[in-house]
């Protein structure tokens, strides 16, 4: 409980040491290191990000808006929104149940379950797509049953939604588990002894205290769902105007040498990424302020 390191206002510490080390920090080495880091980040992140916007508007704003209103582009946007609308709620329910099941109990196999939940992050998106094709495709396990009942999963929306949900599965559980571990069970037990039923306890006590972690998880799930390319690409069949999400549309337009149209659609996805980062920053600040209280 007692902090072992010296507090900064410790009078016994010589006050000259920090003031002497301050100018040392501002010498040529620090400038060199900052410069190198910024150069590296510019080559890898900032110039590519800037390039998206410059290329998208290289034929003028008129062309930009016109290419976004093409039927195929509009369909791709709707597709991306629908994929997220299916994958995000599914993973929120799964994530919350998992967090409630695993955060507060210690038992044999808990570590195993935790790493099982993280597994989707380590599997290549292409392999994810492959697995879904092997399961629901024409030659797959359920191929005959599905064909007999005239249900189309692969090369249609259901498989794309499955692939999207697969790759974004762990985010909510991952963000909520540490929060649940930290808040403990005192308040919930108090609510229970005061006569609240389990739904009341969840909605009035648990949910408010995990809300920022949950929102953070939803944010990451949504970003990954809307941006997923590899897994969706394998199972979609990439039929223009039918099974094409926005990232697939970007690749299609690029392959057909409609670079400006590809970049116009990319602007939407890049804006999504920027918005995600800004909201993430706000949520992180919210949780940090709460920690300091």
């Amino acid at each position: 409980m007692i902090p072992l390191h010296h507090s900064p206002e410790n009078p016994s510490q010589p006050s000259s040491a920090p003031t002497r080390s301050k100018p040392q920090q501002r010498d040529w080495i620090s400038f060199l290191l900052i410069g190198l880091a910024l150069l590296f980040l510019s080559l890898l992140i900032y110039l590519p990000a800037l390039n998206v916007f410059v290329q998208a508007f290289s034929k003028g704003a008129g062309y930009f808006f016109a290419s976004l209103q093409k039927p195929a582009a509009l369909h791709a946007m709707r597709m991306t929104l629908s994929l997220a609308a299916v994958a995000v709620p599914l993973n929120v329910i799964f994530g919350l149940c998992t967090a409630m099941a695993l955060a507060r109990k210690r038992f044999l196999g808990r570590t195993f379950l935790l790493s099982l939940i993280d597994l989707p992050f380590s599997i290549s998106p292409v392999v994810v797509g492959l697995m879904i094709v092997l399961l629901y495709g024409r030659q797959g396990w359920f191929g005959d049953v599905l064909a007999a009942n005239n249900i189309k999963i692969v090369f249609a929306f259901p498989a794309m939604a499955l692939a999207t949900a697969f790759v974004s599965m762990p985010f909510v559980a991952r963000e909520v588990i540490p929060v649940l571990e930290e808040i403990g069970t005192d308040q919930e037990e108090a609510a229970e002894t005061l006569g609240a039923n389990s739904w009341q306890v969840f909605f009035r006590v648990t949910l408010p205290s995990i809300r920022w972690g949950l929102l953070y998880g939803i944010l990451l799930t949504n970003a990954r769902s809307m941006g997923e390319f590899g897994a969706v690409s394998v199972v979609s069949g990439n039929i223009i105007g039918k099974t094409q999400s926005l990232p697939l549309y970007v690749e299609q337009e690029y392959k057909e040498y409609n670079t400006e149209a590809a970049f116009a659609a990319s602007v939407l996805l890049a804006l999504l990424a920027v918005a995600t980062l800004i909201i993430k920053e706000i949520l992180e600040r919210k949780t940090r302020v709460k920690d300091q209280e």
Partner: peptide, 18 residues
């Protein structure tokens, strides 16, 4: 904040712009 851009930017867009 920008360090996380490679996480947030859809990979197709990253490939295209790079």
């Amino acid at each position: 904040a920008s360090i996380d851009l490679p996480f947030a930017l859809p990979t197709a867009v990253a490939g295209l712009t790079l």
